[in-house]
Design a protein around this nucleic acid. Structure first.
Length: 279
DNA sequence: AAACAAGTCAACCGCGGGAAG
DNA sequence: CCTTCCCGCGGTTGACTTGTT
């Protein structure tokens, strides 16, 4: 009923993206903007399904993606957010602009959950374990003569089956571009890594539920929030003002959270704090 | 140096929600 | 309402990398 087959059913390309495919996708989105993922591949000349294009763009090609290691501050925030919200990766990612839900999810699964466990904390419930779990057999300890890699993957034990589910309203992504369906926005964002910093920057974006319009003027970049025009000295300021996390951004969240921890009726307030994150 | 185990992370899958008709 | 379609999310996979023996 009603569900279109995905790429696997219609012989489209799968697996790792080639530089050429990346370029095609970037160029198309530069020209037409995000959205209409289903029809995008055809129009962009890509032999990929829309889902694959969206994923590649969201997790890798977006110009506001923050590259590099996740800092300890960010890790700490992720852990605290996870304690409040559970595996709501997109919501957590929304509070760490520049980080993708996939990145945070991977980092949690590969680093943070193990670290918590080794510290004697259940990564699912964030409660103390009866006894700290030993770091799963010292790193890369030989286990010759047992299962091979593929089998290990297949037989991975499900340890999260008892995880309580949290039912909360759908989160609103903090940093994403909100577009009405079937409506693209005009965008000519310069991607310095691939196209060179040749100037032209103008893109509409939603920032804290306000529409912004970036413009490239003679003496720097400016953006509009509502009717008010704000000047930006250089491109890096865009990050600070809008999409990427700042020290202040993280600190503010910390403070907010720490204040709640100090109060008596913490559960009620933590709940409302969690709810506020959803707005 | 080779073989193997373990870690990492980009990409895929399937489901559910919501908008449009 | 109901059906269809699209999007976004979370869970999972598997290719590749890195460390150990």
């Amino acid at each position: 009923m009603g569900r279109a087959p995905c790429c696997s059913k219609v012989g489209l390309h799968r697996g790792p993206w080639t530089p050429r495919e990346d370029t095609l996708l970037i160029k198309y989105i530069e020209a037409r903007g995000e959205g209409n993922w289903r029809s995008l591949p055809k129009k962009a000349g890509l032999l990929r399904c829309g889902k694959s294009c969206r994923l590649r763009w969201m997790n890798y090609l977006r110009p506001d993606i923050k590259r590099g290691n996740i800092t300890s501050d960010e890790e700490d925030l992720i852990i605290r957010m996870h304690a409040l919200l559970g595996n709501r990766w997109s919501l957590i990612a929304g509070r760490l602009p520049g980080r993708t839900d996939n990145e945070i999810k991977n980092h949690w699964n590969t680093h943070l959950s193990k670290r918590l466990r080794s510290q004697g904390t259940d990564p699912n419930t964030h409660k103390k374990l009866a006894e700290p779990v030993q770091q799963e057999g010292n790193k890369r300890k030989s286990n010759k003569g047992t299962s091979n890699n593929k089998k290990r993957k297949k037989s991975k034990v499900k340890v999260e089956s008892l995880k309580p589910k949290i039912h909360l309203p759908k989160p609103v992504r903090f940093s994403s571009l909100a577009l009405p369906r079937n409506e693209s926005f005009e965008c000519n964002t310069s991607l310095s890594s691939s196209t060179g910093a040749d100037g032209g920057l103008s893109a509409d974006a939603v920032v804290d539920n306000s529409w912004c319009n970036f413009k490239d003027g003679d003496d720097g970049i400016s953006f509009l929030v509502g009717d008010v025009e704000h000047d930006i000295v250089d491109g890096t300021d865009i990050e600070c003002q809008t999409l990427l996390p700042t020290e202040n951004h993280l600190e503010k969240l910390y403070d907010e959270y720490l204040q709640l921890l100090k109060t008596d009726d913490d559960q009620v307030k933590l709940d409302s704090f969690a709810e506020s994150l959803l707005l």
